[in-house]
Design a protein around this nucleic acid. Structure first.
Lengths: 127, 127
DNA sequence: GCGCTTCTGACTTAGAAGGTCAAGAAAGTC
DNA sequence: GACTTTCTTGACCTTCTAAGTCAGAAGCGC
């Protein structure tokens, strides 16, 4: 029930990319402006790239940029890319768990929790 | 952003206690009916006891019971007892984090996330 | 070909998750 | 008072994740 440093960093970096309009931004620049350890940030950016959220080019004049317009990328997209599925219980989706005895209604509670989380995270975009 | 086994177990045990009305329930009984490893469960129950959520008596005819009526105990109470504060970012409450540059609005997002989580967890009681 | 920057994998250190084990202390029963 | 039951506590264990660090390879622009 907590937000990891990695997820926080990822969203911050994405927000920074969303704001920049002139060409690719270097990892070093992102690391500085958001005070994130450079090497760690680059691993995160790589994961974001593999999930199709950012694009990158190496070499001089290289850097990172968003693959989609900022209003098409939600916080949930970014968090899921680095942390995996949201609101899983014991590493499984809540609807796949069987509760017995007097704990039967608990499943509905966890599903409601996930729904409310999504309501926020999938509604807010980088824009 | 996930629910640990410990939190899940704690709520299930609490739900079981909430449903029983005739005297204390043994740890072994709870472990069996909810399929939770006994020794692990007893550690959890101890934590719940320290947080004033359950009471216990040892010896023959001993066992655990809720310290308060079921409609006065929320899921949030139980989860906080075993997992600590809900929806912290990097182990700190969201309002204590300083975001700079283009990530400024992120703080509001995390606070909204926490508010929505609380809306569910503090509203649902064991009853 | 050279310098710049991303890409990748291997490694590290610390702490949490998810338990297990064994001894001790209190309460009830006979 | 002896005995049993059940909670209490602390120590230990294994596996995984968090949060980084390091070194080198590979692609890009000029």
């Amino acid at each position: 029930m907590r937000v990891s440093a990695k997820a926080d960093y990822a969203v911050r970096a994405a927000a920074e990319l969303a704001a920049a309009k002139d060409g690719p931004i270097k990892g070093e620049q992102l690391a500085e402006s958001q005070e994130i350890p450079l090497q760690f940030l680059e691993h995160i950016l790589l994961e974001l790239k593999h999930h199709g959220i950012v694009r990158a080019r190496r070499g001089a004049k290289g850097g990172y940029w968003l693959a989609k317009p900022p209003d098409a990328v939600t916080i949930a997209d970014v968090v899921r890319a680095v942390e995996g599925p949201i609101a899983h219980v014991q590493s499984a989706p809540p609807e796949s768990i069987e509760y017995r005895g007097n704990a039967e209604h608990l499943q509905e509670v966890w599903i409601a929790v996930r729904a409310n989380l999504r309501a926020v995270l999938e509604h807010v975009t980088l824009a």
